[in-house]
């Protein structure tokens, strides 16, 4: 796992957007071989979306040949409700970029048969050859997607009951009325995320500091589901200074040193590629 630390959430957003842009462009997606991207909702990724939109507007990036899969959606909330994840994704991202609507996949929380919806979602992901890069965020309790503390680390896409913490945290989006917050969601599982070839996670703000420390300084633990990332061969966490508050100085220094080495290797690899001598992705140097 790699950890990249930037000053603030805007800088984190820029870093991730440029990273994803580079990955998509190096992948050189076509209609036959699209880039498959997993996407989150929530406040953390907004800066990333803003930066990605700018790259699209500046013609440095296109989503014409990108397929997206979102992590989760509330159950029973109308699709055009102001807090639905459909609405969020359209408002914050899809309406501003050039992705064809047919290439967007979001779980249908209003499906008659929710279990069938979850299974078919997994099937659809497989049918595109799996997810190339999954972008994620975390909750204060360290959940990734709606995989609340206690979720199985082998879980797949399924119906999930929201933890009380999450309901309280989300009440601010529902007129501060806890009773209006949906109790259930459909979400990809921890294993679904781990199946993707690369995982990038945004962690910003002091409130996420404890979760970050639990996820990377302690062992794999189903009470902090992000910690499952330790089992992934190519994972990247991008964080701001605030979110590192609970980390050991040693941890921070170690990860900063990794960034330097990675940069050197990637530069060398890029040179080789320019001469046609390298075809492999660099992957994680960690």
């Amino acid at each position: 796992m790699r950890l990249i630390i930037r000053d603030d959430s805007a800088a984190v957003g820029d870093y991730i957007a440029n990273y994803i842009c580079k990955r998509i462009n190096e992948f050189n997606p076509t209609a036959e071989k699209p880039f498959v991207l997993g996407l989150p909702t929530g406040s953390s990724p907004i800066a990333t979306y803003k930066a990605l939109i700018k790259l699209v507007k500046d013609d440095k990036l296109s989503f014409k040949n990108v397929i997206t899969f979102n992590m989760d959606e509330y159950v029973g909330l109308p699709r055009d409700h102001s807090e639905s994840y459909h609405t969020f994704m359209f408002r914050e991202f899809f309406s501003h970029i050039d992705i064809p609507p047919s290439q967007v996949n979001i779980l249908d929380g209003n499906a008659k048969d929710l279990i069938a919806e979850c299974n078919s979602y997994e099937q659809r992901i497989k049918s595109f050859g799996g997810i190339e890069l999954f972008l994620g965020g975390i909750g204060e309790d360290g959940h990734i997607a709606f995989n609340e503390p206690g979720s199985s680390l082998a879980s797949r896409t399924r119906i999930k009951t929201l933890a009380y913490d999450t309901i309280l945290a989300n009440a601010r989006f529902f007129e501060n009325d806890v009773s209006k917050v949906p109790r259930m969601a459909l979400t990809v599982g921890v294993a679904t995320v781990l199946d993707s070839r690369e995982v990038v996670v945004v962690v910003t703000g002091q409130r996420k500091a404890l979760a970050l420390s639990k996820a990377i300084e302690e062992g794999v633990n189903h009470l902090w589901t992000l910690s499952a990332l330790q089992m992934h061969p190519w994972a990247l966490i991008v964080t701001d200074e605030d979110a590192t508050a609970e980390l050991h100085v040693k941890t921070v220094k170690y990860f900063k040193s990794i960034e330097r080495v990675q940069d050197e290797v990637e530069a060398r690899q890029a040179e080789l590629r320019a001469h046609g001598e390298a075809t492999q992705q660099v992957g994680s140097m960690e």
């Binding site: 699709r79 055009d80 359209f90 309406s95 609507p101």
Partner: peptide
């Protein structure tokens, strides 16, 4: 148009 509906239901932009 309701842009969001056009995008998710009509699947057009």
């Amino acid at each position: 148009l309701d842009a969001q509906k056009t995008f998710f239901l009509r699947r057009e932009r």
